[in-house]
């Protein structure tokens, strides 16, 4: 599946461009080559990309230019990647982070 429940679409139809396949939370996403990880996820699902550090609220990217830190993901085992700044590559494995939240708050 290259698209589940996203409210966005690729303006260059997938059939007309080179694609790469990545995994987000175990789901396969086929996306145009060269797009950012944030775009790849937004183009795939309306679900959240990460949770806020303190309260664990669901978030999606706000600024898409590297300043809001609302798109932090784990990419191939590396933490705290800003999805809006990372281009996708074939076989990339993306996971949400901050899924475990601070219980004491």
């Amino acid at each position: 599946m290259s698209k589940t429940n996203s409210k966005f679409e690729w303006n260059n139809p997938l059939a007309t461009v080179d694609t790469v396949t990545i995994t987000f939370e175990g789901e396969t996403c086929v996306v145009p080559a060269g797009v950012t990880v944030a775009a790849a996820i937004l183009g795939h699902t309306n679900d959240h990309i990460c949770k806020s550090a303190a309260a664990g609220e669901k978030r999606t990217p706000y600024c898409l230019m590297g300043v809001c830190f609302e798109c932090l993901v784990e990419i191939d085992g590396l933490y705290n990647r800003q999805a809006c700044l990372e281009p996708v590559y074939e076989g990339m494995n993306v996971k949400r982070q901050n899924e475990v939240i601070d219980k004491t708050k």
């Binding site: 550090a53 303190a54 705290n80 901050n98 475990v100 939240i101 601070d102 219980k103």
Partner: peptide, 11 residues
Amino acid sequence: PTMMVTGRMPG
């Protein structure tokens, strides 16, 4: 003296 703080590491 220089200190640092990490992100949350629950548990």
